[in-house]
């Protein structure tokens, strides 16, 4: 009965008082579906916005990888607007996420699942679940994850409803990583080589890719003035 599922989830969300709203949301996502961890990413048509919340370091890395690499279960779930299920990233049925899978495995994730976050026709993110051992979601877990994604999506908009005009709700900012450092770095690179910030973002991505480094690390080096882009080979000073 869908009502019972929803009730169980709502009771978990309304019960207890401690902790930030979104981190509790994430925790309930993982607990209710019996997963090792969960995270929520916000997306837009232009690409991922960043991470809203994660339950643990592995989930945080899974979201970071997807942001940096532009591939993974959350991005696919958002793009395809349907659940994306990978019961074993070591032996995937369909080869996919070639850059994402290695580091995700290395971090301890074995099965990963993405569920789109939407309210009606409005789609704005994805719920990410992972487990440290392979295996599919059973029918019950799958149904719980669908209701959970629905409740999470409504809860996020509900939190934003309380925000002052023009601002992101403080409850959504708490525990979130919207990758502001990447945008700061884009502004710096744009100034260094006199291109638009859009072009600078592309250069940052290209540099990270060609040096096999996480985008955020490159961005931090730019902001920390370790790496510059106005030298002859496009970027210098980056160690290693």
């Amino acid at each position: 009965m869908p009502g019972e599922r929803r009730l169980r989830i709502l009771a978990r969300l309304t019960g207890g008082t401690s902790g930030a709203e979104t981190s509790r949301l994430c925790r309930v996502c993982a607990d209710i579906t019996g997963m090792s961890g969960a995270g929520i990413m916000l997306m837009s048509e232009a690409g991922p916005r960043g991470s809203l919340c994660t339950t643990d370091e592995v989930s945080a890395l899974i979201e970071q990888l997807q942001y940096d690499l532009g591939e993974g279960p959350c991005l696919d779930a958002y793009r395809l607007d349907r659940p994306v299920l990978e019961p074993d990233i070591r032996r995937p049925v369909v080869p996919r996420w070639l850059a994402f899978s290695g580091p995700a495995l290395g971090a301890g994730a074995r099965a990963v699942f993405g569920f789109p976050l939407r309210v009606g026709s409005v789609r704005f993110g994805a719920l990410n679940l992972f487990r440290d051992r392979p295996g599919t979601l059973d029918a019950d877990q799958h149904a719980d994850a669908l209701v959970m994604a629905d409740v999470a999506a409504q809860s996020i908009l509900l939190l934003q409803a309380g925000a002052p005009p023009g601002q992101v709700a403080a409850e959504l900012e708490a525990g979130a990583d919207f990758q502001y450092v990447v945008h700061q770095a884009a502004g710096m690179v744009a100034a260094q080589i006199d291109v638009s910030v859009g072009e600078a973002l592309v250069r940052l991505h290209a540099h990270a890719f060609s040096h096999d480094r996480p985008l955020t690390d490159v961005a931090r080096d730019v902001v920390g003035r370790v790496t510059r882009f106005d030298e002859s080979d496009g970027a210098t000073g980056s160690p290693g």
């Binding site: 916000l42 837009s44 916005r49 309210v119 009606g120 026709s121 409005v122 704005f124 409504q154 809860s155 908009l157 509900l158 934003q160 409803a161 925000a163 005009p165 023009g166 601002q167 992101v168 959504l172 919207f178």
Partner: peptide, 16 residues
Amino acid sequence: AAAEAQALNDQLNQAL
């Protein structure tokens, strides 16, 4: 929140 989903999501996007 559901009734205002479009508006709320637009607000969130605009703010971000």
